[in-house]
Computed example of a mutant assay.
Amino acid sequence: MNIQAFEYSAEGMNRVYENEKWLVGIKNWKPANDITSIDCLERHNETDELFVLIAGKCELVYANETSNGLHFEVVKMEPFKVYNIPATLWHNTITEKDTKLVLIEDSSTSLENTDIFKLSNQQIQQIRKCVNIE
């Protein structure tokens, strides 16, 4: 038996380790996660998701549903802290080039139990305002 090591350096996310209970992925910057291109939020309906920033900059944008629609908030991630996204919370990552995150989630998380919400132009502007980009 040997110790295994995993890495990923291309754009976007790749599941680098997975077993029957959980998975670990590496998520790097990609154009869709840039503040100039963000157009959706997602939520995992059955499972939490954990993020750890290991390089670069990342803001976690999230939204709670209210009677007036979605209410957006942003958390500026700090390196090496663990951030939990609870199941059913709308969220996305806003990253810059050279950003690298580790994500950990239940191995059952998939598109079958995940919703994608397409943002309107007005909602994108609200998010940019939260991130101080206008």
Score class of each variant (00 low, 15 high):
residue 79 P to C: 05
residue 80 F to M: 09
residue 25 G to D: 12
residue 129 K to N: 14
residue 31 P to F: 09
residue 30 K to T: 10
residue 127 I to R: 01
residue 131 V to G: 00
residue 109 T to M: 15
residue 105 E to W: 12
residue 42 E to H: 00
residue 6 F to I: 08
residue 80 F to I: 07
residue 79 P to K: 03
residue 68 N to Q: 11
residue 28 N to I: 09
residue 132 N to I: 00
residue 124 I to T: 04
residue 101 L to V: 07
residue 84 N to H: 01
residue 43 R to W: 03
residue 113 N to T: 15
residue 4 Q to L: 11
residue 24 V to D: 14
residue 66 T to Q: 06
residue 14 N to A: 15
residue 38 I to Y: 08
residue 97 K to E: 05
residue 92 N to V: 00
residue 19 N to L: 13
residue 59 E to R: 00
residue 70 L to M: 08
residue 59 E to I: 03
residue 60 L to P: 05
residue 51 F to T: 01
residue 80 F to A: 09
residue 88 T to Y: 01
residue 114 T to D: 06
residue 9 S to N: 14
residue 45 N to H: 01
residue 95 T to E: 05
residue 129 K to A: 14
residue 34 D to T: 03
residue 132 N to D: 15
residue 118 K to G: 00
residue 130 C to G: 11
residue 84 N to P: 06
residue 120 S to Q: 00
residue 96 E to L: 05
residue 127 I to C: 01
residue 67 S to K: 04
residue 122 Q to C: 04
residue 66 T to H: 02
residue 89 L to W: 01
residue 40 C to H: 05
residue 34 D to I: 01
residue 12 G to H: 10
residue 82 V to N: 10
residue 24 V to H: 09
residue 76 K to C: 13
residue 93 T to P: 04
residue 63 A to M: 03
residue 54 I to R: 00
residue 130 C to N: 09
residue 3 I to Q: 05
residue 125 Q to P: 02
residue 129 K to W: 09
residue 43 R to S: 08
residue 124 I to Y: 00
